[in-house]
């Protein structure tokens, strides 16, 4: 823990992870339809969480603790893939009404 190189690497990974989360959320605003928004939320957040998990792994108190951290990532991935698919299928079955020009500012 006192290794400065490790500390720098962990900090970089944590900041990277948070930046990706921020960009994923930006996707909610910049993209204009549900399906494209899901692309942003699943893929970018997956990567963001991956970086955060990677940064936290060296801090794990034990092997079990490290595995638990990895399990969190795996569970989040499974949940995001499944919910993305369910939302996409729901939109496909009953298409959303066209947006009323509010997203056309940019």
């Amino acid at each position: 823990m006192t290794d400065p190189l490790m500390f720098v690497m962990q900090s970089v990974l944590l900041v990277l992870g948070c930046l990706f989360f921020a960009v994923g959320t930006l996707g909610l605003f910049r993209f204009s339809d549900t399906l494209t928004r899901i692309h942003a939320l699943t893929k970018v957040d997956n990567l963001g969480l991956g970086f955060i998990v990677l940064a936290l792994l060296p801090l794990a108190p034990s092997l079990a603790g490290g595995l638990k951290t990895l399990l969190i990532w795996a569970a989040a991935l499974a949940a995001s893939a499944t919910s993305a698919h369910l939302i996409a299928r729901a939109v496909h079955v009953r298409p959303e009404p066209p947006e009323t020009g509010e997203a056309d500012h940019d």
Binding site: F20, V23, G24, L26, G27, R30, F31, H39, A40, K43, V44, N46, L47, G48, G50
Partner: peptide, 8 residues
């Protein structure tokens, strides 16, 4: 992740 971030 990088692909979507780049487009966004």
């Amino acid at each position: 992740g990088v692909d979507v971030a780049r487009r966004l």
